[in-house]
Simulated scan of single mutants.
Amino acid sequence: MGVPGDLSLDLPILQAPMAGVSTPAMAAAVNAGGGLGAIAIGASDTAAAARMLAETRERTDRPFNVNLFVHAPPMPDPAREAAWCDALRPAFARFDAKPPAALRAIYPSFAQDDAMLALLVEAKPAVVSFHFDLPDGPRIAALKQAGCRLLASVTSLAEAQAAERAGIDVLVAQGYEAGGHRGVFDPDAADDRLGTLALARLLVMRTRLPVIAAGGIMDGAGVSAVLALGVVAAQLGTAFIACPESAADASYRAALMGEGAAHTVMTRAISGRPARCLANRFTALDETLTAAVPDYPIAYDAGKALNAVAKARGEDGYGAQWAGQGAPLARAMPAAALVRTIAGEMRG
């Protein structure tokens, strides 16, 4: 398929990592179907990451992708965080609850996580991918020395060129259609919001690296369309959320398979970074908030707390129900069967 490292893929199909949704079972099933499965350890500590790596290896003997978050370390701002909690107080009060007394960064960035780096150097996964930015040179060198092939999500030509200079092996061109967190390196900078087709073709023409297209791709026709642009593969995320191997809860699945799938919005309110989500009570709340959102992932501490108290009272509309614009095309079937179905659609 053109991805360096001879990953022995039967099909040019990658499953997006999707922290909180992907599982070792999903990665193994995608591998069994002929694609490249993935797990996400960016929101995990090293112990949980080690368990996920071990379980995935028990389930599949084929390569899989291990994804990390490389966000800028957040800047604590107690006054800003207190104002954010005050802005959310009426939403908490609906469930007879109060916002957290203080907010914290709920997980570190790989940019500073030496323990996670040591784990990966020892584990030597075939593929390691980065979201939100790039690690520094020594971390990239250590992973490459361990034999890992490195992928990075990029949303612009400038980010792609930075990845190329840093020694990344393959670019993941994340279009604005994509579900979940936007991969922009700087969430406060101007975003040209390039769509998948425009971005993928631009990177194919203007960089020397293999390109994987991501965002809004849900079936074989979509995969074939991006392959015609010169990319080496397509990465699909939302397409796999309804699979039984997914960790998505029942309310998330119901929302994805319902009429609401036709309405996704980009929001920072849930986590502190732009992310595409199914329209729900949290995204509606975002439209009324005027307080400045704390840095990612500090804001996520409040978002997760609000979702927890709401769910305890039977309200499922405050979750991070990430989904791309192709959500109405989601299909509920086992992940391996979905990969094979997509392959059949590509052959047409």
Rank of each mutant, 00 (worst) to 15 (best):
L7G: 10
Q15L: 13
A19P: 00
G20F: 02
A32C: 10
G33L: 10
L36G: 06
G37D: 05
A38H: 08
A47F: 05
R59A: 14
R62N: 02
N67Q: 11
L68D: 11
V70T: 15
V70P: 12
H71A: 02
P73V: 12
P74V: 01
M75D: 15
P76S: 01
P90Y: 02
A93L: 03
R94D: 10
D96S: 13
A97G: 03
A101H: 11
L103C: 09
P108L: 00
S109H: 10
A111S: 13
A115Y: 04
P125V: 04
V128D: 07
L134Y: 13
P135R: 03
D136I: 05
P138Q: 09
P138F: 11
R139E: 13
I140Y: 10
Q145Y: 07
A146K: 09
G147N: 08
V154A: 05
E159G: 07
A160S: 00
A160G: 06
D169A: 06
D169M: 00
L171Q: 06
V172C: 05
G175K: 00
A178N: 05
A178M: 07
G180E: 04
F185V: 00
D188A: 12
D191F: 14
D192V: 14
G195R: 04
G195M: 02
A198T: 15
A198S: 14
R201L: 08
R201D: 10
L202T: 14
V204E: 04
R206E: 14
V211W: 08
V211L: 08
I217C: 04
M218L: 12
D219V: 10
S224C: 09
L229Q: 15
V231E: 03
V232F: 07
A233S: 12
L236A: 04
L236T: 04
A239Y: 01
I241V: 15
A248S: 10
A248D: 10
A250W: 01
Y252M: 04
M257H: 09
G260S: 14
T267D: 15
T267K: 03
S271N: 11
P274A: 12
P274V: 10
A275W: 09
A275Q: 13
F282Q: 12
F282N: 08
A284L: 14
T288I: 08
L289R: 00
L289S: 08
T290M: 13
T290K: 08
A291Y: 06
D295T: 02
Y296E: 07
P297T: 01
G303D: 06
A308D: 10
A312S: 08
E315D: 15
Y318P: 04
Y318C: 07
Y318L: 06
W322K: 05
G326M: 01
R331C: 03
R331S: 04
A332M: 08
A336G: 07
L338C: 08
G344I: 05
G348D: 11
